[in-house]
Each structure stands twice: as structure tokens, then as C-alpha cells.
Design a protein around this nucleic acid. Structure first.
Length: 1120
RNA sequence: GGGCGGGUAGCUCAGUUGGCUAGAGCAUUCGCUUUACACGCGAAGGGUCCAGGGUUCGAGUCCCUGCCUGCCCA
């Protein structure tokens, strides 16, 4: 089957496998190779039919099972899943499946995220490409319908991908961040935060994408260097001649006069005398964005600048605009390199090199200037200017419609896009001069390469832009600080430092622990969260804005405001609505009333109110004379707002009753969820917000609340940020990079599609490999190659998992063939006493413990590696090979074989669900028998392995004497194998071992015979000529009968033997010198633990014995 | 600028409280159509554990400094 076939299947949703009509074959008929495509679809169908992954909250509430819950980090519907998703979801599935088998009532909640800006951008691009129109041309309603259709398409692709990966999600409960259940949660959360004053509207500088025309978050931007220039503009200096006009009245040029260089010189301005005496003086500002001068409201100088003193109290006039703005002093201004304390050092700072010491201050168009503007509000406003003057339209063109009023002669720039405006400004400055002089307003231009913020989605250069946005006041003690208090004590910095429990109250734990620090520091430096986006795809802000008719004076305005509020309340019948509205108005400004609606019913009423207002006859008095317009806020919420509610919204919060039938008891049973499994950049974007919201929105006494009968549980109470956590553990996994350590991305073409891997290697192989590479580091590399046959990317790393699946398959095939031929076991199986069986059970018990520890600590690589060694090394290489002669007749051994295989299947199932389930179909009907000390609880549903019990292996099975005895036998076998290989003994030839009878017990002899191909052991104490000598535990033993006497090649046998012995002597001597060196160190015997010294002495004795024996053999050969 | 990782065999990575004469898989070499598996079996070669200091009887592991590299936050 081809990769292309499977790939298509992902898109149309048809499972990848060809129709097989497969019924479980008899053991003997199983094919030699495990073909994933022959099984995966059938297995998945069996899981689905049995509803094997459907969680029942009632079992938890009745106390029949403990809960285990994971919510999926909802993938964006923007695109199909990549390998990072495959990793993330495999890790979750391993947790879900293992805990389900351990007896927990396990809920893995699936779903997808609407991904506001990302999805809108993709659909907009599609629309432009396919239909050649913009979303504005299509209109909001039709556009949203298009996005909805796109979402449906990708939601299906993603769901199918997850299913093909084998994810054991509770598919009946699948959610989408914009479905009705989640939307209810969003409205409720917004309402409560709004009512409690934790959501506000404010004019701030945001990252503005002028192409998509929306605010974007920092994480939706990237920095990229561009070639640009520093432009040096001259602003003519003036001084005020008239006294203060009224309070903050506009100062005009007429209120000021030009100031000359002579006057500046008189004021002590260094170097003023070098300029033209009575000509008007100027200052030079350096900028990369000259067009923004239209919005300048000050010019700043560093107070340490020697020129500052003489300029204090002066002004500049903005050319063409004519605006008079003050010279202010602010530490932020970078001093030119020459003025700095260490001019040489300053030369490495490009800003200092390019600086003039004067900074144009444009608060509405630069974040630093914004801060400066706020610091010097009084000085700026004294000139009659607002601190912020916005001179751009949302599309990035120069505009006098968005807050810029004193246009003056600058009208020639209005309407120009950013780039054209820049050119035009430079042209105008170049040809104009400072009054009364010949000095050009444009001093010079210097090329400058610097980093500029771009929008991820449109690639446009970000414009810092002043606009009205909604904010969540996360700095409030009930939000970010409460999130930090949620950390467990030993992961909190403050408590680690003080050594005592401070105000922490939570159980939130990060794995690996270092990420707690990332989390804590994020909250320490957090700023209020801008939650509004000027998009069409998302949850619309549930606030209606009521504009009032302007009134003649403040008193009238306030009166009209009160009347309007009353009339709105009446219209909405607020009293009967039981607090479903929150009406907010700024009494001082009295221009607008905000009505926040809590639910859909309230929304509909508000809609009707708006309609009735619009329909009202203009001449009628009453409401119409008070209210100008009524409309819902057009913004939508940041995607993370709905994501932040995911753990509770998916379970029906705020109203399981309204959410529907399947939601009863879900929150009570599964909240807080157990573990969140995600990537590290998500700590700040998502983890933090989920903790803040849930702690704030859920009832403070949730532990007590959730034990009440369902009907009495109240979800409507706000805590003070002391509510329950959304999850107790946060596991942060690695990021998969390509072979060169680069991020996988579409543009680099180095990404891997999970479905391609599944098609070429099988789902289990992919999962095993991903687990195996998941260590505690932060990045893992995945070398990628293009498959020439399919043209698709793949990686040879997945061969590991494919080979391992196949190994398991064949081990099972062999086991079945062995047990299939035997008669059914009697009811009383003797306790296994043979060395090899005791050894196998001991290894099994040890591995089980290691796997349990690994799962508990999220050590996926250890888990996979332990299973690899158990199955491949212990079970296949040694156990299966060793039992071949005895298995057919040994009932006890049959039970060990059968039980061990079943334990391996169960232990491996969470990582490799398909192949283990497929084998289990066969194994269940095999004769076996139980082994005391091993508990294998039968499946709960439909005989499925995925619902069977996790194996329990008693510690009593761990048998150190069996392990050491086997270890000793194994080393003898290895020595013999090495000698055979070096002497090129034909692989099938059985040789003769000459060794004392006391060396090995009979069952050990049997193992050596089987595994090293020994025909017989000769204990007569003699060995024939031509026998070779081996050293085992410092004693000489011999091997003979290596080949037929007449066989060719025997002539060279002595040389081979000499070479072999020389190597042993060399290796031994190297060891001897290392070990002697250690023992001769005087401090060693005195300070090292005695057991350590003893061990070294033993090692030395053995090395010496090995060397001496090899020397003796070499001498006997007549060698050097 | 602040924080967090990584640097060990040709490649990808393990190496948990210091005890190591440093491991695995892949790749390489040699031998095998061994009736579970060639997606396999047996054997072999391959390392200045980034560099330099320090602590210690003993350092891949702990401490300091530096270099390279990646990520997150500003």
C-alpha cells in the first residue's frame, strides 16, 4: 500500500487500510511480518463499537473508580496535524491508556480550537486566490459562513488523524471552542469578569496589523532585519512670548517667536556660536520613521546632555503642521556616543552612534514614546495638545479622521500610505529650510539595518497603533498572583528562598520542575491582557454599546445618562432577568453606556432593544432623544480567552443542565483534571490563563461543593481567586526539530506528516519511536529524508519502532505455535522452579516496576527502553531461545511463557495499542495457566486489551539468585560464542566443551548446550590436541571438535587462536594497570568504602587470572 | 538584557544520590537462507565525554570561568 493512499484517506476520512474482511487467523496462519494496515482499521472499529474510551462520571461519583482526566490541547483548525501534534497526543494517549488499565475511570476530552486570526487569515487568502475578493467585499455574515465551512473540513481531518494515531479520546464528548457549550462559558466568564471590574476598555498602543486591520499579540509577531535609514530632521526652535493662555488652551505659532543662535549662545548652549548668529536655531532629531513626525507632541533631551540647560522651557514648531510642542527632559534619551562617559564603549551601541541627543516623541506611534508621553503629560498638555495624536488610519495611511485635528499645511500628506508618506515627508523637508536661513529641514540620511516587528499572518510591518481595546486586569491579585500561589510549595521561588510556606495554597506541579520558574516569572512581570481583536472569526464581545445624544452641558448629560440607564433597564426588564445584564457607564464622560449580556436570552433581548430603537420614529420623544445608537461591539475575543476556559467549558460549565444530557456530573467527577500535556511556549499563553480563569471563576470551596447532589451544586459563585485548579500536573514535552536543529515548518519543507509515517511504518512504530526519544531535554532532533518513491518526508528513525512491532509480532507468533500444539494445562500448575523461568519472571517483575516508575514520572523514554530490553533482549534473545528444547513438555514453563507474553502485551499496550490488541485477539484463546505472584485482571469491555487490567507482578518474583546464576551462565555462553566466531566455527556445528563437572549445574549445562551449540561436556579433565583454551572466571576450560580434521582452514586455526589470546592478554593488562593504579593510590584504601575496595581487588584478581590463563595457553601453542 | 536547555562513537541519544575499565539504536566490518522474526541471528571495530581551572581517594556526573548552539521572555 502506498503512502499516497493513506494520505488521501486522511483528507476524505476513509480509514487507510484496504478492505480485508479479516477474521482473526489461527496462530499458524499469521504472516511472518506485522503489516499494520491489515489490523489498524479493524482494531479501531472494535474499540469504537465497545465505546471502550467513553468515560462514565457516575462510576466516579458512586465511588467505584478513581478519576483520571486529561483535556486535549485543542489543535487549531487552521491546518492538519504535524509531527509535534503526533508527539503531544501520543504522550497523552500513553497516560490515558495506562491509567485506564490501572483501573482509573479515564476521560480524555478531545476537541479543536477556532484559532481566530490564523484561521481567518488562511480563509482570507483562499478567498482572494480562488474568488479574487476580500472579506469586506463578501461581508461579515457570508465570510464567517465560509470560515465555518473551512473549520468543518479541517476539524474532520484532524479528528481522523487523531483516530488513526490510535488516540483513546472520548469521542462522544468532542468539543469545539466556538460551539454552543463553549460559547456559553465564554459569555459567562466575560460577564463575571466585567461585572467585577476585571475587564475594562482602554485606549492603548497595540501591535497593529494594517493589512488584516486588527490588533495582534506579541506572539503573533516576529522580528526581522530590514535595510532602512536614519533620517535627520531639523525642528526650528521657538520661545513663548505671551503668558499662559487659559487652561491647556492651544498654543499657536503666533504665541511664540523664533529663537536665534545668538540667543542660544547667551543661554550657554555649547557650540551655538558656530551657527549663523541671528538665524533661527534648530534641533536635529534622528528617526527611522520620519512620517510619524505628524504625530509628535514633544522633543526630548537627556537631562545629562550639556545642552539641556539652555533649552529648558523652549519649544519647537513642527514644519508644515505648525504645532508648537515642548522640549522636555527624559532619561530615556540616548546620549550621542561622544557625550557618553565611555565614548569608545558607546561606539558598539548603534543607537548611540546614530543618536543626535534629541528624540522626537510620538506617543501614539511608538511604545517608548508612549511611556515618555505619559511621564510628561503636563508639559505636553500645557501647549494645548493631547499627549497622543494618532495620524494613521487603520489601513496604515495618513489620516486626519482618527484623532489628528491640527493638520495645517500638512494636508498634502493626508491619504498617503505609510511608505509614500515617508517619501513625501522627506521630499518636503529637503526642499524647505529653517526660517530666515538657508539650512534644509532634512539634515542628512544614513543607511541603517535594524530589526522590525512583522505580523506572522500577513507578513506586514507592525504599526504601533493607538486604539480602543478590551483588557483583562490580570495584574489584579485575584488573577496572576493567585496563579502563582497555585504552585506547590517546593516549586515556588519565594517559599524556597524563605524556607517556609508563604501564601501558597495550590497543588500545581510542573514536570520537569524547571518550568515552574518560567511560569512564576511570567506572572511576576505580567501586563494587562488585551483580549479584543478586530476580526470576524471568534467569540464576539458580549457588550452592547449605547451612544448617547450629546447634551449641552455636563449636568444635562448626566441627567440624560441616568434617564437612559433607566429606560434600558425597563426595556430589558432587568429585575426579572436575575442579573443577566451588567450596565456600566462613565458618569464623568456621560457619552456611552455599556451593557454586558450574560447569556443568549439576554443577548436576544438586547438585539430586540436595538431594533426597536432603530425602528422608532425619529420625531418621537423619549428614548430616541436620549440615545443616539445601539449596537453590539464589533470586536471578537482573543482565541486564548476561550482556550483559557477549556478544562471547564468542555465539561459543561457554567451549566451542565443547559449543556445537555451527557454533561451531568462531569465537572464533579473530573475537575480538577489530572494532567495537562503541552509544549513550553504554551506555559505563558495558555497554562497561565487557564489557572487564572478557573481559580477565579470556579467556586472557592469546590472540594466540598462537588460532593453535593448534582442539583445543589452551584457553579455561579465567584471565588477570590482561590477556586480549584484546572489540572494538578503540567507535563512539558520536547520540541521536535529536524536533523539540523531547525524548527519543522511548512516554509522550510522539513515537516513530517504523521499520516505519512503511519502509512510507511504503522501507527505503533511512530508512537514507539516518539516515546523512545522523549527524554527530559527541551529539544529532540529528527533527521528527515525525502522518500524518493512517494516524494513524502519520512525519517529512518521510525524503523526502530517498525522493527520493534515486528519483533513483538514474531515473538507472539512463536509463542502461539509453541502453546498451540500442547494440550490444555491441568488446573494445578507446579510453581516454576527452573532457572530460566525464575530468571524470566524476575526480569518481568523488575521491568514492571521500572515501567510503573517511568509512567509516574513522565519518563517516556525509560518506559519505551525498558520494554525494548524486556521484549527483545530478555524475552526473545534469551528466554525464547533457551526454552526451545523444553517448552513442549513442560507445563509450568508453558504457563510462564504465556503469562510473560501477556504481561508484555499489557505493559506495552499504552505505547503500541494496535499490535498488542491484534495479538491479544489470538493470545486470549491460548492455553496458559496462571503464575502465582502475577495478577492479570480480565478486560472490562468486549474482551479488549485496552480495557484489561494493568499487570501486577509481586516483588516476590524478583529473584537475585536466579539472576546472578543466569548472568554467570550467560557470560560463559558469550565467551564460547566469541571463540566460535573468531575461529570461524560453522554456525550449526556442535562443539565439545571440556570443563570440570563442578563448574555448572545440570540445568546450566543444558542452557549452555542450547545457546552456545555445545554437543557435550567432557569432564574427564583431558582435552584433545587442537582444543582451544578459554578463560572463565580465571580458570582454563577448553573447546574442541571445532571442525572436521580434514576441513580446509584448520591450518590457520593456530594463528587465529594466537591472535585471540593476544587480544585477551592485552585487554587484561590494560585493566590490571588501571586497577593497580587505583589500589596503589594511598587515599583510596583509606577513604573509599570497603566494599568498593574489595570489588576493585576482585576485579584485579580476575584480570590477572584471565591474563595468566591466556598466557599459558599461548605458551602451550608455542606462540610468542 | 533576563531566564532555561544542549555540547558524550560517523549519526540520533541514554548515562537518577560522584564508584565507569563510558552504553543503546542506526550506520560500518565479518560470518549465517539457524523453521518466530533478514524489519532477523551471532560476532567485531569505533570515544581527549566542548575547553580550562577547582573540590574529591575517585568527576561524563558537583562548583567556577570561557567557547559553541538552541529555545522562551522582554
Amino acid at each position: 500500500m502506498s503512502a499516497a493512499f493513506a494520505h488521501n484517506s486522511g483528507q476524505n476520512g476513509t480509514p487507510a487500510e484496504p478492505p480485508s474482511g479479516h477474521t482473526p487467523a489461527q496462530a499458524g496462519e499469521l504472516p511472518k511480518q506485522y503489516k499494520p494496515a491489515d489490523h489498524e482499521q479493524r482494531i479501531r472499529a472494535r474499540w469504537d463499537e465497545a465505546k471502550a474510551f467513553h468515560a462514565d462520571p457516575q462510576r466516579v461519583l458512586r465511588g467505584e473508580a478513581k478519576p483520571y482526566a486529561i483535556v486535549i490541547p485543542p489543535p487549531n483548525v487552521t491546518d492538519r496535524l504535524h509531527l509535534g501534534h503526533a508527539l503531544n497526543n501520543t504522550l497523552q494517549d500513553v497516560l490515558a491508556r495506562s491509567h485506564r488499565m490501572m483501573g482509573f475511570e479515564t476521560l480524555w476530552m478531545p476537541g479543536t480550537d477556532h484559532a481566530g486570526i490564523a484561521t481567518q487569515a488562511v480563509v482570507e487568502r483562499r478567498l482572494k486566490k480562488e474568488e479574487g475578493i476580500s472579506r469586506q467585499q463578501l461581508g461579515r455574515e457570508k465570510f464567517v459562513a465560509k470560515v465555518q465551512a473551512f473549520k468543518d473540513e479541517y476539524e474532520k481531518i484532524i479528528t481522523d488523524q487523531l483516530k488513526l494515531m490510535g488516540c483513546s479520546c472520548d469521542w462522544d464528548r468532542q468539543r469545539f471552542t466556538m460551539d454552543e457549550v463553549c460559547a456559553r462559558a465564554v459569555r459567562e466568564a466575560f460577564f463575571r469578569l466585567f461585572k467585577d471590574g476585571l475587564i475594562y476598555r482602554g485606549k492603548r498602543l497595540v501591535n497593529w496589523d494594517p493589512v488584516l486591520q486588527t490588533a495582534v499579540a506579541d506572539d503573533e509577531c516576529y522580528d526581522e532585519e530590514i535595510d532602512s535609514s536614519f533620517y535627520y530632521l531639523r525642528y526650528p526652535l521657538r520661545e513663548m512670548v505671551k503668558g499662559p493662555k487659559g487652561h491647556n488652551a492651544k498654543v499657536s505659532a503666533a504665541d511664540t517667536i523664533p529663537i536665534s543662535w545668538n540667543e542660544l549662545a547667551r543661554r550657554g548652549y555649547p557650540g551655538a556660536e558656530q551657527h549663523g548668529g541671528e538665524e533661527q536655531a534648530w534641533v536635529t532629531v534622528a528617526t527611522t520613521r520620519p512620517e510619524t513626525y505628524l504625530g509628535d507632541t514633544a522633543v526630548a533631551i537627556n537631562p545629562k546632555d550639556p545642552r539641556a540647560n539652555s533649552l529648558r522651557g523652549l519649544f519647537v514648531e513642527l514644519p508644515l503642521v505648525g504645532r508648537i510642542i515642548p522640549v522636555i527632559e527624559d532619561d530615556y534619551v540616548v546620549l550621542p556616543a561622544a557625550m557618553q562617559a565611555d565614548p569608545e564603549a558607546a561606539k558598539s551601541d548603534p543607537k548611540a552612534v546614530f543618536a543626535t541627543g534629541f528624540l522626537k516623541v510620538t506617543p501614539a506611534h511608538d511604545p517608548n514614546d508612549y511611556e515618555i508621553g505619559l511621564r510628561h503629560k503636563a508639559a505636553i498638555e500645557a501647549c494645548g495638545n493631547p499627549v497622543m495624536i494618532n495620524m494613521l488610519a487603520p489601513d496604515g495611511s495618513v489620516s486626519d479622521k482618527h484623532g489628528w485635528t491640527d493638520v495645517g499645511d500638512a494636508h498634502l500628506f493626508v491619504g498617503l500610505p505609510r511608505e509614500k508618506a515617508r517619501k513625501k515627508v522627506l521630499e518636503e523637508f529637503k526642499v524647505r529650510t529653517v526660517d530666515n536661513s538657508t539650512v534644509s529641514l532634512l539634515a542628512e540620511t544614513k543607511p541603517y539595518r535594524h530589526s522590525v516587528k512583522h505580523s506572522d499572518r500577513s507578513k506586514a510591518i507592525i504599526e504601533p497603533y493607538l486604539s480602543d481595546q478590551w483588557y483583562v486586569k490580570v495584574t489584579d491579585d485575584r488573577l496572576a498572583p493567585a496563579a502563582n500561589r497555585a504552585l506547590v510549595a517546593d516549586q515556588r521561588k519565594s517559599e524556597q528562598q524563605s524556607g517556609k510556606a508563604a501564601d501558597g495554597d495550590g497543588q500545581l506541579r510542573f514536570y520537569p520542575a524547571r518550568y515552574a520558574k518560567t511560569y512564576e516569572q511570567w506572572h511576576d512581570g505580567i501586563r494587562d491582557w488585551c483580549i479584543s481583536r478586530q476580526l470576524w472569526w471568534g467569540h464576539r464581545v458580549p457588550v452592547w454599546r449605547v451612544q448617547l445624544v450629546p447634551q449641552a452641558d455636563d449636568t444635562a448629560a448626566q441627567k440624560s445618562l441616568s434617564l437612559a440607564i433607566d429606560s434600558i433597564s425597563d426595556a430589558l426588564d432587568e429585575a426579572k432577568q436575575q442579573g443577566n445584564y451588567h450596565i456600566l457607564a462613565d458618569m464623568a464622560r456621560a457619552e456611552e453606556i455599556c451593557v454586558c449580556v450574560r447569556n443568549n436570552e439576554a443577548h436576544v433581548r438586547m438585539e430586540q432593544f436595538a431594533k426597536s430603537h432603530a425602528d422608532a420614529h425619529p420625531t418621537r420623544s423619549g428614548m430616541r432623544s436620549l440615545i443616539e445608537s445601539v449596537q453590539q461591539d464589533t470586536d471578537v475575543l482573543d482565541t486564548w480567552f476561550s482556550s483559557a476556559l477549556w478544562p471547564i467549558s468542555t465539561m459543561g460549565w457554567p451549566s451542565p443542565q443547559l449543556a445537555g444530557k451527557g454533561f451531568e456530573g462531569l465537572l464533579q467527577a473530573f475537575n480538577p483534571t489530572t494532567t495537562l500535556c503541552t509544549a513550553r511556549e504554551i506555559i505563558t499563553l495558555w497554562v497561565s490563563r487557564m489557572v487564572m480563569f478557573e481559580r477565579y471563576l470556579m467556586p472557592e470551596k469546590w472540594e466540598a461543593e462537588k460532593t453535593k447532589p448534582a442539583a445543589l451544586v452551584s457553579l455561579a459563585e465567584n471565588g477570590e481567586g482561590r477556586g480549584p485548579l484546572p489540572f494538578n500536573n503540567v507535563y512539558i514535552h520536547a520540541v521536535i526539530q529536524d536533523g539540523e536543529g531547525r524548527k519543522m515548518s511548512k516554509s522550510l519543507g522539513n515537516g513530517l506528516d504523521p499520516l505519512d509515517i503511519i502509512a510507511s511504518h504503522g501507527s505503533d512504530a511512530m508512537r514507539f519511536t516518539l516515546c523512545q526519544m522523549t527524554t527530559q531535554t527541551q529539544d529532540v532532533r529528527m533527521p528527515m529524508v525525502k522518500d524518493p518513491a512517494t516524494g513524502r518526508n519520512t525519517s529512518p528513525k521510525f524503523d526502530l519502532g517498525r522493527n520493534f512491532s515486528n519483533k513483538l509480532w514474531n515473538a507472539a507468533r512463536f509463542t502461539m505455535s509453541m502453546l498451540g500444539v500442547s494440550s490444555h494445562p491441568t488446573s494445578d500448575i507446579p510453581h516454576p522452579t527452573s532457572l530460566i523461568d525464575r530468571w524470566m519472571l524476575s526480569r518481568l517483575a523488575t521491568a514492571t516496576k521500572e515501567v510503573n516508575d517511568a509512567i509516574g514520572n513522565f519518563e517516556y523514554s525509560n518506559y519505551a527502553q525498558t520494554m525494548y530490553d524486556l521484549l527483545w533482549r530478555d524475552f526473545c534473545d534469551w528466554y525464547l531461545e533457551a526454552i526451545k528444547p523444553t517448552i513442549a513438555s513442560d507445563k509450568s514453563q508453558q504457563a510462564v511463557l504465556s503469562t510473560t507474553l501477556e504481561c508484555i502485551l499489557r505493559l506495552l499496550h499504552p505505547i503500541m495499542p494496535y499490535v498488542t490488541e491484534a495479538i491479544y485477539e489470538q493470545v486470549r484463546s491460548l492455553p496458559g495457566g496462571t503464575i502465582s505472584g502475577i495478577t492479570l485482571t480480565p478486560p472490562r469491555k468486549a474482551g479488549l486489551l485496552c480495557t484489561s487490567g494493568w499487570p501486577i507482578a509481586s516483588d516476590s518474583l524478583r529473584d537475585s539468585s536466579a539472576e546472578s546464576a543466569f548472568e554467570r551462565t550467560r557470560s560463559l555462553i558469550t565467551i564460547i560464542r566469541e571463540a566460535r566466531s573468531q575461529h570461524q566455527v560453522p554456525p550449526k556445528r556442535k562443539v565439545t566443551l571440556h570443563a570440570p563437572a563442578s563448574l555448572l549445574k545440570p540445568e546450566e549445562v543444558a542452557l549452555v548446550q542450547t545457546l552456545a551449540l555445545i554437543e557435550a561436556i567432557d569432564s574427564t579433565g583431558t582435552s584433545p590436541a587442537g582444543a582451544i583454551a578459554l578463560t572463565f572466571e580465571g580458570k582454563q576450560i577448553h573447546l574442541s571438535n571445532l571442525r572436521d580434521a580434514a576441513a580446509p582452514g584448520s591450518a590457520g586455526a593456530d594463528d587465529a587462536e594466537r591472535e585471540r589470546l593476544s587480544k585477551i592478554i592485552g585487554d587484561s593488562e590494560k585493566s590490571i594497570s588501571t586497577l593497580e593504579g587505583r589500589l596503589n593510590n594511598p587515599g583510596y584504601a583509606q577513604k573509599a568504602p570497603p566494599a568498593m575496595v574489595k570489588q576493585t581487588q576482585d576485579q584485579l584478581a580476575k584480570a590477572k587470572a584471565d591474563r595468566d590463563a591466556a598466557r599459558a595457553s599461548l605458551a602451550a601453542l608455542g606462540g610468542a
